[in-house]
C-alpha cells in the first residue's frame, strides 16, 4: 500500500511546529501505524536526521503510553482500540494520513508528537485512592461486593490514562478520566469512607490543571479505547453536588 503521512514536527515546547509530509510505498496491510512510524524513523536515522518522537511502550493497548490524533480522531479510526492497535489495512490505499499530537493546554507538547500528561498523575495524587496502609486490612472475603457493582467498577477501572478523552473533547475536558476513578472507587464499599472528600479534591485538582468544562457531547466516550461510559461522569456530577451540599467535609 502507498500513503502520505502528514506528521506534526515540533522541536520543543516553546517552538512553533509544522506539518512535514512523508511519502511511503510498499507498505504491508498487516503493518501497524506505529511500525510504519518506526520504519520512517529508520529512514531518517540513515540520513542522520532527527527521528519523529512519539510515545509508545507496550504496543498491546494497555499501558496507555501511545497517543496521537490520526485524521482528527484520537487513536485513529476504529472503536475500543489504541493507536498501537491500529493497522494500515484500516486506511485506503493512497490516503493522506494526518498525524497530530493530543492538543490541550493542560497537555503541553514536549517534542513532535509527545505531550506531557503529568496532570493526570497530579489528579490521582489529589485523591484517586483508598487511604489504606500496607497490612491495615481485613480478610479479603470480609468485604462483600455485589457482582454488578464489581463489574461496573471494573468497567471504570479499566481506564488506561491515555488522555484520549481530553484530546477528543472540544473543550479539552478531563471529566471522563476523573469520573472513571471517582466512579470506580465509589461503587465499592472500600471507597465509601472518603467518597465525598475524594470527589472534591480530584475535581479541584482537575480544575486547577487547566482542563475545560464538560459539554456532555460524549466525544470522550466515543474515542475511549476502553469504551468507558459517560454514565460515570453523571455519577461524579451527582456525587460532587451531594458532597458540596451535604457532606461534613470542610476545608
Amino acid at each position: 500500500m502507498r500513503f502520505t503521512l502528514r506528521i506534526w514536527r515540533q522541536a520543543q515546547q516553546e517552538t512553533t511546529g509544522r506539518f512535514v509530509d512523508f511519502a511511503v510505498e510498499d507498505i504491508p496491510a498487516e503493518m501497524s501505524l506505529l511500525e510504519l512510524l518506526d520504519s520512517i524513523n529508520r529512514g531518517l536515522i540513515l540520513e542522520s536526521a532527527d527521528p519523529v518522537a512519539f510515545d509508545h511502550d507496550c504496543r498491546e493497548g494497555i499501558c496507555g503510553m501511545c497517543s496521537l490524533v490520526i485524521n482528527g480522531r484520537p487513536h485513529g479510526p476504529g472503536a475500543g482500540t489504541t493507536t498501537c492497535q491500529l493497522y494500515m489495512r484500516s486506511f485506503a490505499d493512497g490516503e493522506t494520513i494526518v498525524v497530530e499530537p493530543f492538543r490541550a493546554d493542560a497537555f503541553p507538547v514536549v517534542k513532535d508528537l509527545i505531550v506531557d500528561r503529568s496532570a493526570f498523575d497530579r489528579i490521582i495524587a489529589a485523591g484517586g485512592y483508598v487511604t489504606v496502609t500496607t497490612g491495615q486490612t481485613p480478610e479479603a472475603n470480609d468485604i462483600l461486593v455485589a457482582k454488578e457493582n464489581a463489574e461496573e467498577a471494573m468497567d471504570a477501572a479499566a481506564c488506561i490514562g491515555c488522555g484520549a478523552c481530553v484530546a477528543a473533547c472540544k473543550n479539552a475536558s478531563a471529566m471522563l478520566f476523573v469520573a472513571a476513578k471517582v466512579s470506580h472507587l465509589s461503587l465499592l464499599p472500600q471507597g465509601q469512607p472518603e467518597k465525598s472528600r475524594r470527589v472534591l479534591t480530584m475535581v479541584r485538582e482537575m480544575d486547577q490543571s487547566g482542563f475545560g468544562n464538560c459539554s456532555n457531547e460524549a466525544e470522550c466516550e466515543a474515542v475511549c479505547p476502553k469504551e468507558i461510559s459517560i454514565g460515570h461522569i453523571a455519577r461524579m456530577n451527582r456525587q460532587y453536588l451531594f458532597a458540596m451540599l451535604l457532606s461534613g467535609e470542610r476545608s
Binding site: 492538543r103 493546554d105 472540544k170 473543550n171 482542563f211 475545560g212 466525544e219
Partner: peptide, 18 residues
C-alpha cells in the same frame, strides 16, 4: 473552554453527540 485548547487541530472529526 477556549483557554483549555489554544492550539486547534488541523483535522478534527467528531462522531458522538458532538
Amino acid at each position: 473552554n477556549q483557554r483549555a485548547r489554544t492550539k486547534a487541530y488541523a483535522v478534527r472529526s467528531t462522531v458522538a453527540r458532538g
